[in-house]
Amino acid sequence: MKLATLRTASGGTTAAIATGDATYLALPASDVGALLGQPDWRAVVDAAAGETIGNPEYAALTPNARKVICCGLNYGDHIQEMGRELPEYPTLFAKYADTLVGANDAVEVHGSGRVDWEAELAVVVGSELYRADEDQAREAIAGYTVANDVSMRDWQNRTLQWFQGKAWDATTPVGPVMVTPDEAGGHFDVRGYVNGELVQQGNTSTLVFGPAQLLSYISQFTILRPGDLVLTGTPGGVGMGMTPPRFLQDGDILTTEIDGIGCLENTFRIHSSVAANA
């Protein structure tokens, strides 16, 4: 099944299930994260009888996620382009729910001149996990979605800690839908485009740490709950790895696509006194 968080005419949001081409059925939950917090959420979906919504406007999939945890340097080609060795353990950092935006929202950036793209598969947690093994972690995956870990490289590179370049409010698009594992398949082709030009392409079969490994590892030190997100890393082709480095310009359209899940398309408005390629 495919689930989404849609904006309603009243300005709120509702969780919804896809019923056909661009048609959704409203569910009794404010968003997908809230839906997953119901122990019987699958039964709720099966019994859905809400309003049918056409021409959906997507909100961030889990706008109130309590934890958004990201893995850096998790594709072999991206690790190589960044000049690093294969890691023994996942390189993790956190974002806040404030960073999340919808699949077609415009992204406003103030104060960075090196705005970079990172197309990613994201995992949506469906049940509580703490000190879980990989089999338990795999069972706790509610589904998969598309994300872009947009990064402000000038801020990221100010120190050895990445947080300040990664956690900018309203800069991380997530969606448009969550696809449950039974429908999603095993591995995913992940692609990123800038103004229609393919800049990133990879397959999750080449991840150093797969989704279940990541969830299990994270759960050893912090509890994961329904609606939490784990971003699994980005393939090669980021702007900072190009020669010369290339970054998003004001008005650029960033497209993030994963076969079988969907596509994000976000226009960037970059307000900075710093030259974009400085």
Rank of each mutant, 00 (worst) to 15 (best):
residue 9 A to S: 15
residue 10 S to A: 14
residue 12 G to L: 12
residue 16 A to K: 09
residue 16 A to N: 12
residue 18 A to E: 15
residue 30 S to D: 11
residue 31 D to V: 09
residue 35 L to M: 06
residue 35 L to P: 07
residue 39 P to K: 01
residue 43 A to H: 05
residue 48 A to I: 03
residue 49 A to Q: 11
residue 51 E to W: 02
residue 54 G to Q: 08
residue 56 P to L: 12
residue 59 A to K: 04
residue 62 T to R: 07
residue 64 N to M: 13
residue 71 C to R: 11
residue 77 D to N: 07
residue 80 Q to W: 04
residue 82 M to Q: 06
residue 87 P to L: 02
residue 87 P to W: 00
residue 89 Y to D: 15
residue 96 Y to R: 15
residue 100 L to E: 09
residue 100 L to D: 11
residue 102 G to C: 02
residue 109 V to W: 06
residue 111 G to Y: 09
residue 114 R to Q: 15
residue 117 W to D: 05
residue 123 V to A: 07
residue 129 L to K: 00
residue 138 R to V: 05
residue 144 Y to R: 03
residue 148 N to F: 11
residue 151 S to C: 13
residue 175 G to S: 00
residue 181 P to S: 00
residue 186 G to A: 10
residue 189 D to M: 10
residue 192 G to W: 11
residue 195 N to S: 04
residue 200 Q to T: 06
residue 202 G to P: 03
residue 206 T to I: 06
residue 214 L to R: 06
residue 216 S to W: 04
residue 217 Y to C: 10
residue 218 I to C: 08
residue 225 R to A: 13
residue 226 P to T: 01
residue 226 P to S: 01
residue 228 D to E: 07
residue 229 L to N: 01
residue 229 L to H: 02
residue 229 L to K: 01
residue 230 V to E: 06
residue 231 L to E: 13
residue 238 V to P: 03
residue 241 G to H: 07
residue 251 G to I: 06
residue 253 I to N: 07
residue 253 I to Q: 09
residue 253 I to L: 14
residue 254 L to W: 07
residue 255 T to S: 14
residue 265 E to I: 01
residue 267 T to D: 10
residue 268 F to N: 05
